[in-house]
């Protein structure tokens, strides 16, 4: 088990670094997809089978394809120089590492044992989603509606004659 976790963790970290360090956006996306697959595998070991599947479908399937579409269709795949201000880069690195250290130190105290419970089935999640979380669930529908309207309004190409509304 620790070996499996080691492999997965290494994959996740390396592909995550790949996302932020690749020169071309398409490589970033491909790294991100690898990262997401690895995380899906990790979910399987954490009694979250349904989540793992949804994760792959929604993230790796839908969202990443959306990113790829945008990059491909708008021809954005050009290399970019990392020449932002040095100060910002180093301070970002320092702050990131210190955050890991700080949080790591809070995790130093050993945590309790795993509670073993049958969970993660579609049936159980669906039951919870439609009873306890029914209001947030319905509200997320509203959120999606708002997102759709927002996207359409934002991304619409203005009509040449100018009578857009």
């Amino acid at each position: 088990m620790p070996v499996f976790f080691g492999i997965i963790a290494t994959t996740i970290i390396l592909s995550g670094l790949g996302v932020i360090l690749s020169k071309r956006p398409v490589y970033s996306i491909l790294s991100l997809i690898i990262c997401l697959y690895a995380m899906g595998a990790l979910y399987l070991t954490l009694h979250a089978e349904f989540l793992a599947i949804v994760h792959l479908i929604v993230y790796a399937g839908a969202i990443m394809v959306l990113f790829l579409f945008v990059i491909m269709l708008m021809n954005l795949d050009r290399p970019e120089h990392l020449n932002r201000s040095r100060l910002l880069q180093w301070s970002a690195l320092a702050v990131g590492i210190s955050l890991v250290l700080v949080i790591g130190s809070t995790l130093y105290t050993p945590s309790g044992p795993w509670v073993v419970a049958p969970m993660g089935s579609v049936h159980a999640i669906g039951r919870l989603l439609f009873s306890k979380f029914i209001v947030p669930f319905e509200l997320s529908a509203v959120l999606f509606l708002a997102a759709i309207v927002g996207v359409v309004i934002t991304a619409k190409v203005p009509h040449p004659e100018g009578d857009t509304e």
Partner: peptide, 21 residues
């Protein structure tokens, strides 16, 4: 692992100029 991933993401936003990345 989650913390490390979070920090990688944060550093990425900080150092990259490409909006998509």
């Amino acid at each position: 692992l989650a913390t490390v991933l979070f920090c990688i993401g944060g550093i990425g936003v900080a150092i990259r100029r490409n909006a998509i990345v």
